[in-house]
């Protein structure tokens, strides 16, 4: 029997080897190597140094870009939440067929390259685009509105890309609500508004938190949308990292920016999770 067990373990290992080689060779080792490059002089071979990180934290130029990245990600989270919550509520109430249709319609565009979706937005939001042409022909505005190549354009593009994660996270938590709660609340005379604030909203909080952290981290690391819809005026950390790697060729600084991006995202998500959890425990203790 132990021999059989050992041979089973051996087969499992053999089957896992190709996958593990890919993960270790193309992901784990490169990440360690990148850390080395950011922390040591002479492309990871010289003395240990924090000079690349010091460079980032001493220059207000980089800190401004970090702040802009965080700010645009927060805006995106808020817009995704405000627009995504009603959609999730509608899906929770809808018949299964309708629910399937909405899920399909908001999911399928995500299987087409973000470059192409952003191009569509350029056609909609540009100076000669759909919105400006419509508003001008109706005589509402005299000149085109600037909807693109600024922070607004980036938030619109990111919301389009990421709202699906918010909707799915919230709708999953709404599907799980026991409908007899609403029946009970109705019998006890609670209004629709009261029902929303004492049943729907509290029970959907886990979904809101999951959607928020997911949308925030994905927004922080978006490259294509800020590059195509923000233009040169809206520089964010991923765009900066790309420029350092491919144009300035300062690879130790590029590696440090990559870790600044990863570190700040993890830090902010952790702080958010901690805040949310302590609040939840407080509620448990006070009741």
């Amino acid at each position: 029997m132990p021999q059989l067990k050992r041979s089973k373990g051996l087969i499992a290992m053999l089957l896992l080897v190709p996958g593990l080689i890919i993960i270790l060779g193309v992901f784990v080792l490169p990440m360690i190597y990148m850390l080395m490059i950011s922390l040591r002089e002479d492309m990871g071979r010289g003395a240990w140094t924090l000079v690349s990180y010091a460079h980032l934290f001493q220059d207000s130029y980089y800190l401004e870009i970090l702040w802009r990245t965080v700010k645009l990600s927060l805006y995106t989270v808020v817009v995704c939440l405000l627009l995504g919550y009603p959609v999730a509520m509608y899906m929770a109430q809808a018949a299964p067929k309708m629910r399937g249709l909405i899920t399909f319609l908001i999911l399928s565009p995500h299987l087409i390259s973000v470059v192409i979706r952003n191009f569509g937005w350029v056609v909609i939001l540009g100076d000669d685009g759909f919105i400006n042409n419509t508003l001008m022909s109706l005589g509402i505005i005299s000149g085109p509105l600037r909807l693109l190549y600024n922070e607004l354009g980036v938030v619109i593009g990111l919301t389009d890309s990421l709202i699906v994660y918010m909707v799915l996270a919230i709708s999953t938590s709404l599907y799980a609500i026991d409908s007899s709660l609403y029946k009970a609340a109705g019998i006890l005379g609670a209004s629709r508004t009261k029902q929303f604030f004492s049943i729907t909203l509290p029970l959907s909080l886990p979904g809101i938190f999951a959607g928020t952290t997911l949308v925030f981290s994905l927004a922080m690391s978006s490259f294509v949308t800020p590059a195509l819809m923000g233009g040169t005026s809206v520089k964010v950390l991923p765009v900066l990292a790309y420029e350092q790697m491919m144009a300035s060729l300062d690879w130790s600084l590029g590696a440090a920016i990559a870790f600044l991006l990863l570190g700040s995202t993890i830090l902010l998500v952790t702080i958010f999770t901690r805040l949310v959890e302590t609040k939840r425990y407080k509620e448990v203790f006070s009741s």
Binding site: M34, M245, A258, L261, L262
Partner: peptide, 8 residues
Amino acid sequence: PSLIIGIA
């Protein structure tokens, strides 16, 4: 993030 995977 895939951007960081790409850089590494």
